[in-house]
């Protein structure tokens, strides 16, 4: 089973150095991703989920640094954390593609969308602009954009939100990367447009055999397309499990609360719960388990000692003293 591994993150720590102090946004994350697998990283703002995604791409802001850990890319088992900038550049786009959140701001406003897609193809495949542009149009067609050859000649502001997001996806998959990282890919879209974009994502991931890391706060989207879910809280993974069993029987109190906190069409209003309190300040996280101030089941041990992420059965690991 281990041969099919494509990415392995071990004990990764990414910190931000701010005027308020050190923000431990990603604080010891260990994960692996198999070929063709879709993994969701779920968390709220400040959970470190996006920092984790940008750490894999090594696209962190100037005040952030990966301070410890490794990110192994298979089959060669190269450590992305230790690659030179030039070598890392060859991984980006070519082997790991990234889809960003906001189609309004993530496209260059003064460049034709076709050229923005063609750019990566030209560099990684060393082909002429003409060939790359043709390939860009093919990609747009594959993403079900009508009149693709015309759309390729337009500027971002001439396209609708859903179209722009498809262009962003086209850029990310333009060089057939083995891994696709999607950071809140549909958050900025309308519900009906979101459904179509998700459908598309799911479709070509299966078709091309890509592995997906989907970063989101929306448990609804996860249920639609992911095989495995990692729940992050305050820079740590608190629970990781196969999708079906996670939704059926969440184990960590935070996961339980999160699933209850969202009103859904299938729940009656009395079932809508929530979690008391607010997400913690990562400059000064609570001692012991970071969820303890909000946890309904908190007991002594939680206050003093941080629970490790322990495998509880074949497809699940939980970081909670209740499970020990």
């Amino acid at each position: 089973m281990n041969d099919s591994r494509i990415l392995e993150i071990s004990d990764l720590k990414t910190y931000y150095y701010t005027s308020r102090g050190i923000v431990r946004a990603v604080d010891g994350i260990t994960l692996d991703l198999k070929k063709g697998e879709s993994l969701a990283i779920v968390g709220e703002s400040g959970s470190g989920k996006s920092t984790l995604a940008f750490s894999i791409m090594r696209l962190l802001p100037d005040n952030a640094r990966i301070v410890d850990g490794s990110i192994w890319l298979y089959p060669e088992k190269i450590d992305l954390v230790r690659l030179s900038n030039d070598e890392m550049r060859k991984v980006r786009g070519r082997r790991i593609g990234m889809v960003f959140q906001d189609p309004m701001t993530f496209l260059n406003p003064v460049m034709k969308v076709g050229d923005q897609i063609a750019e990566a193809i030209m560099y990684h495949h060393g082909c002429t602009q003409k060939v790359a542009r043709k390939r860009a149009v093919e990609l747009l067609e594959r993403l079900r954009i009508p009149d693709a050859s015309n759309v390729a000649l337009r500027y971002p502001h001439q396209l609708s939100g859903g179209m722009k997001q498809r262009v962003i996806i086209a850029i990310a998959i333009s060089c057939n990367p083995e891994i696709l990282i999607a950071d809140e890919p549909t958050t900025a879209l309308d519900v009906t447009v979101q459904a179509e974009v998700l459908e598309l994502l799911r479709g070509f991931i299966h078709e091309l055999g890509m592995s997906l890391i989907l970063v989101t706060h929306d448990l609804g989207i996860v249920a639609e397309i992911c095989d495995k879910v990692a729940i992050m809280y305050a820079g740590k993974i608190v629970e990781i499990a196969e999708t079906y069993s996670l939704y059926k029987s969440p184990k960590h109190p935070y996961t339980i609360g999160l699933l209850k906190a969202v009103p859904t069409v299938h729940k009656s209003s009395s079932e809508v719960g929530g979690i008391k309190g607010n997400p913690p300040d990562l400059v000064n996280p609570p001692a012991g388990c970071r969820f303890n101030p909000r946890c309904p089941y908190v007991f002594e041990k939680c206050l003093g000692e941080e629970p490790p992420l322990i495998r509880v059965n074949n497809d699940r690991a939980v970081a909670c003293w209740l499970m020990m």
Partner: peptide, 24 residues
Amino acid sequence: DYILTARAKGIPESRVVFRHALRN
């Protein structure tokens, strides 16, 4: 944000700076 998109493509930094940042 579009600079991140450009960098995520894996194109040379000089192109990111001149083609994407400077142009804007």
